[in-house]
């Protein structure tokens, strides 16, 4: 093997890599935040809505979870303009990520709510807790504790999936790498640096989420 590693052209584009990473973070957090809100509505519709709505949401969840994200993003970016709905690449990326993560979040939240026994809220009423207190201490926090690990690993999964939006030339971290690659041809060096950036960020998220978990859910489970 006589290959000269040349990282100089990669590090020369450090500002571009940073702004690419920033777009990746914006897409991840934006999609997760919007996705969670939509998912809460989705869970409500899935469990308490009229039957046809329940079926519709169930079908949506199954379709999204059983098809690749790249096909979903192609469908949205290339397909929807023929209906007159046009997106910039970044907007299409965000829409596709939201549609994708919402389906997973609906399943996670539903499992969390189902895990709370009805007797628990009744016990809260018996203890003369107000409705807000019951929601906060009896329903919301225990449900959050149940779904928290699944939601945070879903976020990291989402964060790693954002790299796929580079295929429609949204300007995320991976797409920035593609740009630099097209100009310098130092492919391996570029993608190695980018992989390390993703790795550092996802390990950082894991550590952050574990710390939050320790602080927020440290109260004892039983007695």
């Amino acid at each position: 093997m006589n290959y000269d590693f040349d990282f100089a052209p990669v590090f020369a584009r450090w500002p571009d890599l940073l702004s690419g990473a920033w777009v990746t973070l914006q897409l991840s957090f934006g999609a997760m935040a919007i996705g969670l809100v939509v998912a809460v509505l989705g869970v409500w519709g899935r469990t308490a809505g009229p039957k046809p709505l329940q079926w519709l949401i169930a079908a949506y969840v199954e379709i999204i979870r059983n098809t690749p994200f790249i096909v979903q993003i192609f469908f949205i970016f290339f397909g929807l303009p023929s209906l007159g709905i046009r997106f910039s690449p970044n907007a299409a990326a965000l829409v596709a990520l939201v549609i994708n993560v919402t389906a997973y979040a609906i399943e996670i939240l539903r499992a969390g709510i189902e895990a709370i026994p009805k007797g628990q809220t009744e016990a809260g009423t018996a203890l003369a807790m107000s409705r807000l207190q019951i929601f906060r201490h009896v329903v919301f926090m225990p449900a959050l504790r149940t779904v928290y690990p699944a939601l945070t690993s879903q976020f990291i999964f989402l964060f790693l999936s954002t790299s796929v939006v580079s295929v429609i030339s949204a300007n995320d971290l991976t797409a920035t790498g593609n740009d630099i690659n097209a100009q310098t041809f130092a492919s391996f060096e570029i993608y190695l640096v980018i992989t390390v950036i993703y790795l550092v960020m996802s390990l950082g998220f894991s550590a952050l989420f574990a710390t939050i978990h320790r602080i927020a859910f440290s109260y004892p489970l039983s007695r």
Binding site: I156, L160, S161, T162, S163, V164, S166, T174, S187, F188, Y191, L192, I194, T195, Y198, L199, S202, L203, S206
Partner: peptide
């Protein structure tokens, strides 16, 4: 901790 796409590229 890394995107599958980057694993493919590497």
């Amino acid at each position: 901790g890394t995107p599958p796409l980057m694993q493919l590229f590497l």
